[in-house]
């Protein structure tokens, strides 16, 4: 006890040093991330206009299920999720296994070309898609020239086609991104397994289904969770491509949250409650996916 310093073992010393190194980062995350999150949670239990907030309990959380626009936005988000995410992940998988073929020429070029959309800014690609699908845009021009349509079709004025345009845009933007994860995962699969399967007479489809998919399961799980998360937080496409229209048919939850905070009479409590609902949804969906997807015992 008279020499407390000697009581600190080497391991403890190292631990302390480790904590000391971590502290600045921990402090920054706590101050910049956790503190606002807790504040937002408290805010979500308050209501009022602008700066005049009062405690309201669970009012905001019950209120949003009576909010027709919010329910519409929630439904839109789930339409995007259910249709777009599976198509994107399957396409990503197929592309990745095709581009993993060692005998394919210009592999690097193809990989780059498919990945490149991810490098474009969210705002600019949304605007480009908007002009592509406008009445006198490129797609209509093509359809008219090919004789499929007699005059330009206003894709963004019809609820179904407007959602389809958003889904197509999302596929273009994100398929390559997920493909890269699969490609990375595929590098960990011994190529000789495929060669062995080939010798045993497995068709490409069989080796895809029996080898690639099971061995990539952790990566597929990761991309599924990330895509779910991303889709529930969609904002740029709704904002820039369709502006939520026609008649709120494409508005997303994040877009509605933005409107509530900055376009309409500000009600930050209500907006914060919605943001927390998105968090809960993401957490629940990720949990379900982990339970379903993770087969390790």
């Amino acid at each position: 006890m008279s020499h407390p310093k000697k009581n600190i073992t080497l391991q403890k010393k190292q631990n302390l040093f480790g904590w000391a190194v971590l502290m600045p980062a921990v402090f920054l995350i706590a101050a910049m991330s956790f503190y606002p999150m807790i504040k937002a949670l408290i805010l979500s239990f308050e209501t009022g206009i602008g700066a005049k907030m009062r405690f309201a309990g669970f009012l905001n959380y019950t209120r949003m299920f009576e909010d027709k626009i919010f329910l519409q936005a929630l439904m839109n988000n789930f339409i995007y999720l259910i249709i777009q995410v599976p198509i994107m992940l399957i396409m990503g998988l197929i592309l990745a296994s095709m581009l993993n073929d060692k005998n394919l020429k210009f592999r690097g070029l193809f990989r780059t070309a498919i990945f490149l959309p991810c490098a474009t800014s969210l705002v600019s690609y949304a605007i480009i898609f908007r002009s592509l699908f406008s009445v006198d845009g490129f797609i209509n021009l093509l359809l008219v020239k090919l004789g499929i349509l007699s005059s330009g079709y206003n894709f963004l004025a019809n609820p179904i086609s407007a959602r389809a345009v958003i889904i197509i845009a999302l596929l273009w933007r994100w398929t390559g991104y997920n493909m890269v994860f699969y490609l990375a995962g595929l590098q960990n699969i011994e190529y000789s397994i495929y060669e062995a399967a080939k010798i045993d007479g497995a068709s490409p489809f069989q080796s895809f289904w029996q080898i690639t998919v099971p061995l990539l399961r952790p990566t597929i799980l990761l991309t599924a969770i990330m895509s779910t998360n991303g889709t529930l937080q969609l904002f740029d496409e709704s904002w820039n491509l369709t502006n939520g229209g026609p008649a709120n048919a494409t508005i997303t939850m994040s877009h509605y949250i933005y409107n509530l905070s900055f376009k309409y009479v500000p009600n930050f409590g209500y907006a914060a409650a919605m943001a927390y609902l998105i968090l809960i949804l993401v957490a629940v969906l990720a949990f379900v996916q982990m339970k379903v997807g993770d087969k390790r015992d």
Binding site: L116, S121, S124, Y125
Partner: peptide, 10 residues
């Protein structure tokens, strides 16, 4: 260049 164009367009 895409990022640059993108932000301008935005």
């Amino acid at each position: 260049s895409m990022v640059a164009c993108g932000s301008n367009a935005a």
